[in-house]
């Protein structure tokens, strides 16, 4: 690979092209491998595909670009503080559509920081909620069979499953 390349182009699973800087791509092990494996010089036509949809990939790249400078050089406490605030804002996203895919993507792309952040966000959404509130937030259908439900009800008469 050519060291002069500063940004690479990748395809989302929907076929859209995205640019990501080399330093940001280094936050992900698989992307890093791609950097090493694929020829990214200007005369090379090959564009690698990342199995993440466009909507999610936009967010993943946004996260990488924000975190890359710090990951590469270390940062002061005030930077860390600012980054934490940024993370909180960044995580305000649609639970059903984006958070779900961010989790899958962060796991697939081996991005520890984003993965931890997304897991914590999901867990925070469950805290202090009732079963039905959680189902609503995460768009989950109650899929216990009527037998299972009957059994749970019998075993736990005080619990609400609706």
């Amino acid at each position: 690979m050519s060291s002069s390349v500063e940004a690479i182009t990748v395809l989302s699973s929907d076929g859209d092209e995205f640019k990501i800087t080399v330093s940001a791509a280094k936050l992900s092990k698989p992307l890093n491998w791609m950097l090493e494996d694929v020829c990214f010089s200007d005369d090379c036509d090959e564009v690698p595909t990342i199995e993440v949809n466009s909507k999610t990939l936009v967010k993943v790249i946004e996260y990488c670009e924000k975190h890359a400078p710090r990951a590469n050089s270390g940062a002061s406490d005030s930077d860390a503080e600012e980054l934490k605030k940024w993370d909180i804002e960044f995580m305000k996203m649609d639970v059903k559509d984006i958070l779900f895919h961010i989790l899958m993507a962060a796991n697939y792309l081996h991005m520890e920081g984003l993965y931890d952040l997304a897991c914590q966000t999901a867990a925070d959404l469950m805290k202090g909620m009732t079963v039905s509130q959680i189902r609503k937030i995460f768009h989950i259908k109650n899929d216990f069979s009527s037998e299972e439900q009957e059994q749970l009800r019998r075993q736990h008469p005080g619990c609400s499953f609706d």
Binding site: M126, M129, T130, I134, R135, F138, I140, D143, F144
Partner: peptide
């Protein structure tokens, strides 16, 4: 609580 949300 989350154990009662769905079977998975």
């Amino acid at each position: 609580t989350v154990s009662l949300v769905c079977s998975s």
